[in-house]
Nucleic acid binder design. Structure first.
Lengths: 136, 136
DNA sequence: GCGAATCGTTCATCTTGTGAATGATGTATT
DNA sequence: AATACATCATTCACAAGATGAACGATTCGC
């Protein structure tokens, strides 16, 4: 059975990217905030490793999120090399709006499905996320 | 119910991209070949419109596929502005190997699922593909 | 204390993609 | 038939996203 899941992944990604443009966010920003929400405060290097991304990219992402007021960024007093990131209340609110957008997209994409099918899809995607080590 | 389908889309896309590296292909190359397989020969502008991509990008993609011997590229004798692309036999074989890779990835991602769940997933993704106007 | 490792940042660079300019060809109007 | 306009492919300059190497500031092991 050929799902062509790769091509579909690209389409879904594209739609999601477009859907969060009004929030002034890119998918990686959402990924970073989601990570902070799930794990609590973390150093930039921790974030880079968890996201599978170069540390220099985290600088850029954190710059942007800090400018939006979505995260705080303070030197760890116990190790002043570390820059500790954490979600602000504004950040949590912003992440809430991301969730709304996500739900709308989910609804749009799975509109034709019955409740049973939706449950199965949720299970499948949950398993997929767990496999990817993703908080969901 | 939050599927976080956007984030998952990114993960799947990434995996697919990695999986076709050995074939010297990127996802868009596969998209172009799939299009030619489904619709038959097409001009570069047709391809650009169908893929939702700039015509100048099709030049690059076609250059690469032509170098691989996967597509032919001939001037339309009836309208010599048009450069007509078509899959070669080698291209069809290459696309076959892409399908194998896709099937392996599908199997890997849905390994823990029962046959009923897989059927539902196939249906859901099929509907999604149809909605995106994608041949599947 | 001193050399080595770690963390964040900057910088040069690569890749992917777009959009404008160009040249070749085709179409329409007169 | 000639001229103006539109269309197609191509090239070029450029923007965005991401990487890796170099560097400065720290901290750790000895």
């Amino acid at each position: 059975m050929a799902f062509r899941i790769g091509t579909l992944g690209a389409i879904v990604t594209e739609r999601f990217t477009a859907a969060i443009v009004p929030l002034d966010l890119k998918p990686k920003h959402v990924g970073l905030m989601t990570l902070l929400e799930a794990r609590g405060a973390a150093s930039q290097l921790d974030v880079a490793r968890a996201m599978g991304v170069a540390p220099s990219l985290v600088v850029t992402l954190a710059d942007h999120l800090e400018r939006l007021g979505a995260i705080s960024r303070v030197r760890d007093p116990d190790d002043r090399r570390r820059q500790v990131l954490d979600l602000t209340d504004d950040g949590r609110a912003l992440l809430g709006r991301c969730l709304e957008v996500t739900l709308e997209l989910d609804a749009e994409l799975t509109g034709g499905l019955g409740p049973g099918d939706r449950a199965v899809l949720a299970k499948v995607l949950g398993a997929l996320a767990a496999q990817a080590g993703l908080p969901i």
